[in-house]
């Protein structure tokens, strides 16, 4: 039972070692710049990479959810209109219509202003 308590810490230190070789999608310079805007400055590039990966995963999850919404919506539309173009386009278009409910699941409220186009 004593080993369980140290498990997450050793897990994180192992992960930090792996970050030496892993290059995230965002360049380190970009992440560092925005971290500096928040008053953060770190010499260790692995810390910057950890934040890059966390951000990347967060955005990736949201996009996944939004596309699931999009797929569900197009599927419903195709089912209600028989004889229409069925699953012809595998490519999806992301619109606010799908992004909005996905973000609402994360507790982020996006609303278009009445006067915006």
């Amino acid at each position: 039972a004593g080993g369980d308590r140290t498990a997450p810490a050793s897990h994180l230190s192992d992960f930090m070692l792996q970050l030496e070789d892993y290059t995230p999608l965002l360049p380190d310079a970009v992440t560092s710049h925005y971290l500096n805007m928040g008053g953060f400055h770190a010499d260790d590039k692995r810390i910057v990479r950890l934040i890059s990966i966390a951000t990347q995963k967060f955005m990736s999850d949201i996009i996944d959810d939004a596309l699931q919404h999009s797929k569900a919506r197009t599927h419903m539309q195709n089912a209600s209109a028989p004889g229409g173009s069925k699953a012809k386009d595998r490519k999806f278009t992301l619109t606010m219509e799908d992004l909005q409910p996905a973000l609402a699941d994360y507790g982020i409220n996006v609303r278009k202003m009445d006067y915006s186009q």
Partner: peptide, 24 residues
């Protein structure tokens, strides 16, 4: 997602920026 609306792209970009600044 082959295409995305301009508003979507801008929302996601702003969210990404805000997230990094906030973590920092």
């Amino acid at each position: 997602a082959a295409t995305a609306s301009n508003q979507c792209l801008e929302t996601l970009t702003q969210m990404m920026q805000a997230l990094i600044v906030e973590v920092g």
